[in-house]
Amino acid sequence: MDKTDKEWIQELMNKFQQSEITKIKIRCGEIELEMEKEASRGKKSSGIISETDTDGQEGSQNPAEEEILSPLVGTFYAAPSPDEEPFVKEGAEITADTVVGMVESMKVFTEIPAGVQGSVQKILVHDGDFVEYDQPLFTVRTEQP
C-alpha cells in the first residue's frame, strides 16, 4: 500500500462519513475495504457497491441502498387491512410515490410514501410492530447510474 492509496482511503472515509450510506464494501485490485457506520450496526444489511470509481470525481457516489424511515411513532402496518395483501413485498419495484406501509397513532393511519425509486430489498419490521421516529422500515436498492 503506497501513499496515494492511503490518501485515497482517507478521502473515501471522509466522503463515506458525510454521505447517507450506512455500509459500504469496496474491492479495488488488492485492496478490499468495508466500512459501516456506528448507528447502523446490528441491522442486517447486504448493501454492496459492485463498482465504485471515485477517483477524482466529486459527488459521483450513488448510494446503492437507501432506507425508508418511519415518519412518526406508532404501530406499523404492512397491509391496508388484515385480510389484504401487503402494500409491497421484498423485491417489489417501487417509485417515490409508492405507498409502502402505514403507521397508526391515535387511530389515525398515515401512509408512508417510499420517497425513493428502486426495488425493496429488505423489510426490517413486522406487521403490528411498534416503530419509532426515523426507525428504518425498509432497505431499497436504488437504480445504478
Partner: peptide, 14 residues
Amino acid sequence: TPWSAGIYPICESF
C-alpha cells in the same frame, strides 16, 4: 389527505 382514520377495519377477520 395522506392519512385515514378508524377504530376497526371492515374486513373478514374482523
